[in-house]
């Protein structure tokens, strides 16, 4: 069957990319400043202790051997230890990934609910007032630096208007996190029936989510618009009109067929939100992987940095792969081709 072969082919093409990602990640880490041994030992260790540590950490081995070790560790699921905390990076990151994902999903929800209808309306009412406004808002959205927007919103909505909470992370200080089930505070507090925490976590996630959504709204709206417009200009839409089908039906067709490119943009947006989280998390002290990466850079803690770049690269590539595969499921030309 066509679909199966298509998916296998995609996966095969994915392998060299995976390899490339590890290569880039390794190279960047190799050149990171700071002496891992010194960071690992902390304090002011003696020259002998340092030397011993360097040998133990394999820093004197040739590059290719170090890459080989890195790869074999990676394949056995070992991302190394944080030099600072001496805990496995996987463990450190696992916690924070959920914070990043929770923020991304809430933002994505806002984007999908607002951005897609806006794009569809702009396309159907091309060159109307709504279209012009949506386009202008769209271009403005991608022209505003997210960190600045975050700061301005904090100033206006927290300091001045006092509507939103301070930018202090996922919950106010002193409040315990909900019983851990999924790691998403909203879901966990809901599941454990802790409505007070649910309210607080929704309250605390709102402003960072709105900021992320505003910055990422534009691409979705714009892509939706151009995808729908593209379909509307197709011959088969003309033919449907020539066959006298009602406009409502024609719009439905156009929407359905524009779904794939819209899907792709949603996928890309998730990627962008995860990479953009590094800035948003700093502004809102959101304890996700972005903030963790910045802290690790500041303290020369190599393994978490390496893991961060690897994870973001993998996620990005994986999303691309998944949207490709989604194409296969939706498009009959691939499915049965």
């Amino acid at each position: 069957m066509g679909l199966f072969r298509y998916i296998v082919k995609r996966f095969l093409l994915f392998i060299p990319i995976l390899f490339g990602i590890t290569l880039v990640t390794f190279t960047i880490t190799y050149f990171l400043p700071g002496d891992p041994a010194a960071v690992r030992l902390g304090g002011s260790p003696s020259v002998e202790a340092l030397e011993e540590m360097r040998i133990k950490m394999g820093l004197y081995k040739p590059v290719w051997e170090r890459y080989f070790i890195y790869m074999s560790d990676l394949l056995s699921g070992d991302l190394g230890k944080s030099y600072l905390t001496d805990r496995p990076v996987l463990y450190e990151i696992g916690d924070r990934v959920l914070a990043t994902l929770e923020l991304s999903f809430v933002s994505l929800f806002i984007i999908v609910v607002i951005g897609i209808p806006l794009g569809v309306i702009s396309a159907f009412k091309k060159n109307s007032i709504i279209d012009h406004v949506a386009r202008f808002v769209g271009v403005s959205g991608i022209s505003i630096p997210s960190f600045w927007l975050g700061l301005v919103l904090i100033f206006l909505l927290f300091y001045v208007a006092r509507i939103f909470p301070p930018p202090l992370g996922r919950l106010p200080p002193g409040i315990d996190e909900p019983a851990r089930i999924t790691g998403f505070y909203i879901v966990d507090s809901l599941l454990s029936g802790d409505l007070e925490t649910l309210k607080l976590s929704l309250y605390y996630i709102s402003l960072p989510a709105i900021t992320t959504a505003l910055v990422n709204l534009a691409p979705i709206t714009r892509m939706t618009r151009s995808a729908v417009l593209d379909v509307l200009e197709k011959d088969y839409i003309k033919a449907a009109r020539a066959a006298g089908l009602p406009e409502r039906q024609i719009y439905k067709d156009a929407l359905k067929n524009a779904l794939i490119p819209i899907l792709t943009t949603i996928g890309l947006s998730i990627g962008f939100m995860i990479s953009g989280s590094i800035v948003i998390e700093k502004v809102f002290s959101w304890p996700g992987i972005g903030l963790f990466a910045l802290q690790s850079i500041a303290s020369n803690d190599h393994n978490p940095i390496q893991a961060y770049i690897l994870i973001v690269g993998l996620t990005f590539a994986l999303i691309n792969l998944l949207t490709d595969i989604a194409y296969g499921f939706v498009d009959p030309r691939i499915k049965y081709g």
Partner: peptide, 23 residues
């Protein structure tokens, strides 16, 4: 709209692109 497709209709230059590929 009631005339189109019922009393007057049209075959397009390229039938492949004039049929909805997803239906």
């Amino acid at each position: 709209s009631k005339i189109r497709g019922k009393k007057i209709s049209m075959i397009f230059q390229q039938s492949r692109t004039a049929l909805n590929p997803f239906m």
